[in-house]
Computed example of a mutant assay.
Amino acid sequence: MGYYDIDDVLTDNAEIPCKFLHDIPGLGYLENNPGGSIHVNSQLKLPLWLARVLAIVEVAPEVDPITGIASEENTPFITLMTPEAFSIKVINAIKTDPVALDIHSINPQFYALAIKWIGLFGDRDLAEIVSELLLKRAQVINSHANSITISYKNDSINHNSKSMNNQTVFTLTLDEFEKKIFKQANESYKDIKKWMFQS
């Protein structure tokens, strides 16, 4: 992942639900209230790149001009709430049947978002769930990637139409990281089978 990685850019643009901890003048346009303020406890979805910064940067407490005492401790602008991709409903679906799950419909950059989220909060439970999910799905990805037939006559690759339809439906459920794994595994199997029939 890097500055020019499109998947990283798309992951950083994933919308994260946030709760504002302060009144902020001039940002009312985020709530379709141009010129107004965002008020304490307002909940909005912000892109991860912005939400991450606002959750880290702290606002200094107001100091009473008469007593000189601060009203409260430093607090960030917002607090991050759990995105839909890691909700209890999704986690339960992952635990129930990780292979049949349509990860792409949950989030096309599911694993990349999980890595960023785990890094932000050090969420070991989520890390274990996502690791187990990838392990179980990788076995099925590998199986689909290996479903290629080779013609003995001209050493060309022939795809069974039913197999191709199954692969197409299956790949639509993969997130972008899984698609890369599938493509690399598929190309490796093709190369191995070509080499075997040349011998």
Rank of each mutant, 00 (worst) to 15 (best):
G2E: 13
I6A: 05
I6T: 03
D7R: 07
D8W: 10
D8R: 04
V9R: 01
V9D: 02
L10A: 14
L10K: 15
T11K: 04
D12S: 14
N13A: 12
N13D: 12
E15M: 15
I16G: 00
C18E: 02
F20S: 04
F20W: 05
H22E: 07
P25Q: 10
P25W: 09
L27Q: 01
Y29F: 15
N32F: 07
N33A: 10
P34R: 02
G36N: 09
S37T: 08
N41L: 09
S42K: 09
S42T: 12
Q43G: 00
P47L: 14
A51C: 11
V53W: 04
L54Y: 14
I56M: 05
E58P: 04
A60S: 14
V63E: 13
T67E: 03
E73M: 11
N74Q: 01
P76F: 09
T79S: 13
T82N: 03
P83E: 07
S87R: 05
N92P: 04
A93K: 15
D97M: 02
H104A: 15
N107F: 11
P108Q: 06
Q109S: 05
Q109M: 09
L113T: 01
L113M: 05
K116I: 06
I118P: 12
D123P: 02
D125F: 10
V130R: 06
S131D: 15
S131M: 10
L134T: 01
L134W: 07
K136W: 10
A138H: 10
I141Q: 00
S143D: 10
I150S: 12
S151N: 15
S151V: 10
D155S: 11
D155H: 13
I157L: 12
I157S: 03
I157R: 02
H159W: 12
H159G: 08
K162E: 04
M164A: 13
F170L: 01
T171G: 01
T171H: 04
T173K: 13
T173I: 02
T173G: 09
L174F: 01
D175E: 13
E176L: 08
F177I: 04
K180R: 15
K190Q: 14
D191H: 06
W195I: 08
W195L: 15
F197C: 03
Q198C: 06
S199V: 06
